[in-house]
Amino acid sequence: MSSYAQLVESQSAKQVLDLFPDIIPLSKRPNTHSSESSSSTQGDVVFEGHDEEQIKLMCENCIVLDWDDSAIGAGTKKLCHLMTNIEKGLLHRAFSVFLFNDKNELLLQQRASEKITFPDLWTNTCCSHPLCVDDELGVDGSLAGKVAGVKTAASRKLEQELGIPVSETQTKGEYHFLNRIHYMAPSNGPWGEHEIDYILFFKLAAGEQLTVNPNVNEVRDYTWVTADKLREMLHNPHLKFTPWFKLICESSLFGWWEQLQDLSAVENDQTIHRLL
């Protein structure tokens, strides 16, 4: 185990709250998507030169975690993504959606240039965070509750980023929870990621099609790929990919892809896979 992993594992919920006083404890969380207004970010030097819509999203309330994926409280997206905080062990919950059509092709997106973290990089269909609100948190603390909350958040973000209506993800296919990965990666400037990331496959039912109408503030480009096409892209030196997507590709994605018709052998893994 790395020294960083040992640091994160050693921190109790109380120690995390003491270390980061801006975290709102779980019992006092506002149960709202954001705990700050965008006006509170005005003049913040870390946001100089960044897009206003993306700055507003940095006020959203992520779910701050302990080593075991138990919720400690609500921390803003800004708080959770500053490397100065990540280096002290601050951890939050995330999800990564891999959406497949009925031809077993995977939908990839290229993140918009406006994104504050990992701009312009290619990645899986949708990568984001459940928020510290009742329907995305998993308030009973069970893994099943957390997975249900992550699926709710995934549908919300698929609509916000790619214009895929929630009504379509609810009726035209099915989510499959595969596992959780725990990783840390620096991004550009002062930013980075340190997440327990829930891996979700979404399989579109036979004969169904989704509306895809990307939000240009979120998505620069998108494409449907076969497994062979993705392998070609990963070997193209002119293309750059997000670190979590590369980790998943290198560890498990292509093996899972081969089992897409029957995921029963690989879904609902209870283990948190540590990639620190």
Rank of each mutant, 00 (worst) to 15 (best):
A74L: 06
C249Q: 06
V266M: 08
K56Q: 03
P186E: 09
H81D: 02
K28S: 14
Q6S: 11
K28H: 06
G163K: 10
L79C: 04
G49E: 02
H33E: 13
S264N: 09
L57E: 06
P25I: 02
N268D: 10
D69K: 13
C132V: 07
G89I: 15
I116F: 00
L17H: 06
V212S: 05
W244E: 00
L26P: 10
F95N: 09
L162I: 09
K203R: 11
W257K: 13
A144R: 14
L234E: 08
A206L: 13
Y198F: 07
N31T: 08
I272C: 01
N104C: 11
Q259F: 07
A74M: 10
V212W: 02
I164D: 05
R180Q: 08
T169C: 09
W224H: 11
I196W: 00
I196V: 10
A148P: 14
L276P: 00
Q160T: 09
K151S: 01
I199K: 07
D69W: 04
A206K: 15
L90T: 12
L276S: 00
W224P: 09
T171P: 09
S38Q: 05
F241R: 04
W122G: 06
S38C: 05
Y222Q: 05
G189K: 13
F245D: 06
I24V: 14
D269H: 13
E52C: 05
F100Y: 15
H235N: 11
P30V: 13
E114V: 08
T41A: 02
N215S: 06
H194K: 05
A71G: 04
P190W: 00
W256V: 12
V225Q: 04
A205D: 14
D51N: 02
H81E: 04
D269F: 11
L99A: 05
G75Q: 03
I55F: 01
P237N: 01
P190D: 03
D135E: 12
E267A: 09
S96K: 10
N213Y: 13
S142V: 03
H194Y: 11
W67F: 14
M1G: 14
E208R: 11
L79F: 04
G138Q: 03
N236M: 02
S35K: 03
G141K: 13
V150Q: 00
L253N: 09
L90W: 12
G89P: 07
I23C: 05
M184T: 13
G255W: 08
T152W: 00
